[in-house]
Write a protein that binds this DNA or RNA. Sequence first.
DNA 1: CTCGGTTAAAATGAATGCAAACCTGCGGTT
DNA 2: AACCGCAGGTTTGCATTCATTTTAACCGAG
Lengths: 242, 242
Amino acid sequence: MTDSVLNSELSSQATKAHAYGKVDRDNLHDDLLSRLRDFIVEGHLLPGGRIPERHLCEAFHVSRTPLREALKVLAAEGLVELLPNRGSRVRQFTDKDIKDCFEVLAGLESAAGRLACARITDDEVAEIEQLHYDMYGHYMRRELPEYFRLNQAIHEKLVAASGNDALQATYRTFTARMRQLRYSANVLASDRWGQAMREHEKMVDALRRRSGEELATILFEHLLNKWRAAADSLEREDAQGS
Amino acid sequence: MTDSVLNSELSSQATKAHAYGKVDRDNLHDDLLSRLRDFIVEGHLLPGGRIPERHLCEAFHVSRTPLREALKVLAAEGLVELLPNRGSRVRQFTDKDIKDCFEVLAGLESAAGRLACARITDDEVAEIEQLHYDMYGHYMRRELPEYFRLNQAIHEKLVAASGNDALQATYRTFTARMRQLRYSANVLASDRWGQAMREHEKMVDALRRRSGEELATILFEHLLNKWRAAADSLEREDAQGS
DNA sequence: CTCGGTTAAAATGAATGCAAACCTGCGGTT
DNA sequence: AACCGCAGGTTTGCATTCATTTTAACCGAG
C-alpha cells in the first residue's frame, strides 16, 4: 500500500517535473540533482519506502545513468540510503540522527557567530537588527509563519556574515536534512516561543557588541534548545499518534 | 608536460590498484570511491591538471559508469571539480578555501569539545591525558613525526568523544581536504610548536574540569592559530619558490 | 491452511554504444 | 606574422544493453 502512495506521488510529480521544461543537455546532472533533492526534502517520497529507479526515471524524464549519479550524491549528503542490490530509499532519521544534526548546526552557527563578530560591518548588523525587530512584531501579533520565515532569514544572514563559503555550504546540507523532518515548523508553536525570542534578543546584543565568544555560546545553546523543543513535541506527537 | 607526469603517476597506480585485489561486485562503488579519494588525498594527481576518464578507468580497472559516479560524489565532497563537457580535475584550493576549511574545522572541534565535556567519562579523559603526556614526551625530545601523530590522535579522540556521528563524518571530510595540502606536516616545524603545546595543556585542563564553554573557545582559537601558522609557512615557501 | 522450495519476473550494477561538445593542427586571410 | 575558421580525432554525457541479484509468485508437502 505504501507503493500506491508512492506511485501517485510520483505520477503527480511527473507532470510537475515536465512543467520545469526540458533542460540543456549539459546541465542535466546539476539540475536533476537539485530537483531530486528538493523533491525529497519537500517530503514527496516516504522515508524508508522503496523507490524503484525506473519510476523516478519516468517522473524526471531521464535515463537511469544520470539518476543513479544523482542518488549517489544525495547518499553522500545523507538524504538517501543506498542498500546494495536493493535500491535506494529516503533516509529515515533516528532520534539520535536528529539530535546529532542539531548539534552540528549548533557548532556551525556558533562558529559563524564568532567569525561574523570579527568581520561584520555596521550595515550588516543593522540589517539583522531590522529583521529582528520585524520578527518581534510578528511575535507580538502571534503571526507564526511570518515569524518563522524571518527567524530562518536571520540565521541564514548570520551564517552568510561569517564570510565562509565552506561553512555556509555545510550549513545548508544540514538544514536540508532538517527540513526533511516536518519539525521545524511545528516546534515554535509550543511555549518555547517566548524563550526563543529572549535568546534572539541576546544574540543581537552580543553581535552588536561584537562579542564573538558570548555569541558562540548563545547560539550553541539556542540550537540545542531548539532541539529539546523539537524532541519534546515529537514525543507528544508520538504519544498522541499511538 | 603535465600530461606526462600524470600518465606516469597513473600507470604506477595501475599496479598499486591491482595490488588491492579484485573486490566484491557489490561493493565496487564504495570501494572505488574510497580508493579514488585516497588516491587524490595522497596527492597522486596534480591539482588543476586534467584527468581523462579513460586513464582513470584503466588505472582502477573499472568502466566509466562507476568511475563517473565516484567522481560526482567526490565533487560533492569538494575534492574534485567537474567542468561541464571538459572533464574532472583535482580541485585547486585557494588561500581563501584553506582559511575557510580551517574555520569550519575550528567550529566543528569547538562544538565537539562542548559536547564532549557534557558526556565524556573519566576513563576517556584519562586516555586523552595519557596521549597528551606521551605527546609532551615527544615534544621534549623533538620527535616531530611522533608528536604529529599523537596530536592528530588527540583531536580525533576528542571529536569521537562528542558522541556525534554526523559531526565526526563532517570533520573527516574536512580533514581530508586538508590532507590534500601538504601543510599540516610542515606547519609545526616552526616556532609555533611551543605555543601549540601550551594550548594543548589548556585544552586538557578545560576538559578535565568539564568546562565546555572554555574548551570551545580554546579549540576554536587553537585551530585558527594552526591556520595562521600554515598561512605563514605557505608564504615563506612561496617567497622561497619564486 | 501454512510453510518451504522452486522458478519466473523485475530491479539493480556495470559495460557498451552513440551523438554532441571539445581540443588540435592546418591552411587561408588580413 | 598574427589571427580566424574549420576539418579530424578525442572526450564527454547520456541512453541502452547485458549480467547478476533480488523479489514475487507459485506449487506441493506436511
